[in-house]
């Protein structure tokens, strides 16, 4: 793999993670926050594939990425289930409504 290709993939990784963090910080909707978390994880998947490629063990990098996909799906399911509960109980998905505990 070219050095340039690696740099491009690395930039995409950082970009995706950055977009995810930005989305989590500014979104005013729980679903969008969950999407932001997903975008971050997609960046990480790319990072694992890149890591496998650079260190010369393509198979291991890909299998790690696959495992991350599985675990990430579980987290997303739990997060969405919580979001459904929040919508039913609070009547809104706005995270700014979730401040009853602050003091």
């Amino acid at each position: 793999m070219d050095y340039l290709d690696g740099v491009i993939v690395l930039l995409v990784v950082l970009g995706l993670v950055g977009i995810g963090i930005y989305a989590i910080m500014v979104s005013r909707n729980l679903i969008k926050i969950i999407i932001g978390m997903q975008v971050m994880v997609k960046g990480v998947l790319l990072a694992f594939v890149l890591a496998g490629r650079v260190s010369g063990n393509m198979g291991l990098g890909q299998s790690l990425a696959l495992t991350v996909i599985v675990v990430d799906t579980i987290v997303a399911v739990v997060a969405l289930a919580l979001a459904v509960r929040v919508r039913r109980r609070f009547g809104t998905l706005d995270p700014r409504a979730l401040t009853t505990l602050r003091r």
Binding site: V13, V17, G20, I21, I24, L30, I33, M37, M40, V41, V44, A47, F48, L50, A51, G52, S55, G61, L64, V68, V75, V78, A79, L82, A83, R85, V86, R89, F90, P95, L98, T99, T100, L101
Partner: peptide, 26 residues
Amino acid sequence: LEAGVKYLVQSAVGSVLILLAIALTY
């Protein structure tokens, strides 16, 4: 619910950073 959402979002971001560090180390 509020505690659960806060905990989940913060932990999930933390675990993504751990994954990045693992990829970097690898």
